[in-house]
Amino acid sequence: MTTAAPTAAPTAARAQQPKLGRTVIFRILRSDGPDKPQRWESFKVTINERGANVISCLQQIAANPVTTDGRRTTPVVWDSGCLEEVCGACTMVINGKVRQSCSCLMDEYCPNDGDTITLEPMTKFPVVRDLWVDRARVFHNLKRVKAWVPIDGTYYLGPGPKESPQQQDTRYVLSTCMSCGCCLEACPQFNLETDQQAWDSAFIGAHAISQARLFNMHDTGKSLEKLRLDELSGPGGVSECGNAQNCVKVCPKHIPLTESIAAVGRAVTVHNLKQFFTGR
């Protein structure tokens, strides 16, 4: 398993920049559809540009999809959008670790001639084709926690609540979650579930718990706090988190997920006690 690359000493890194013109091997786990068998295919890609990343290499493969053993095949299917790690679309498992492929640079992952890189689809979501998975459940789970501020419509009614810069800072970070699903792929409690009927009782996952915290922090968003905590104290709620902390390690937006889980966990405890004593 290879992990993300060095962040330090850019000048030192630049002194020995990987050579252009080198050839790297892409090993890609492919399948033609949801119920079709998976197979590995390998492609040779020449790195001709500084800043080449997994997406630019996949584009090269698409233009001329010939495997290392000389067989012409179909272009690989993958999901992408912004290409700057802000939309979350291009998430896949690279060298065994889940991450965005657009920000995965060849200079870091394959600095030498002949290096190999492995691409696989995420495993916690049903495969559509090749590297593209269906993450509808990520969005569905946002509905479970009512991840919105219940405003009184879009007519002009003046400004929203004032907010301290400290609270804004906290909310801002939580609000950068791009629903990429890395935290779910890495979580031992979150499992593949193809039956949509079962989604509402299966573990909801770190991103949705964190979003519940975000909206419970907002002055107007708070009004739905009780409903959110009802959901999160039920089946598939926060108590199913085993505290493995994998989620926070893989979140590309550095969202303090374990902090959110702890905060929501405490709120759920208080909520349950209240319900126990008042019956509401």
Binding site: V149, T154, G160, E163, P165, Q168, Y172, T220
Partner: peptide, 21 residues
Amino acid sequence: PRIIDLLDRMGVPFNRTSEGF
């Protein structure tokens, strides 16, 4: 300005001054 107010009501975390504006 009305649009900003609306987005503010929707919970957009606009940066704040020390007084909260």
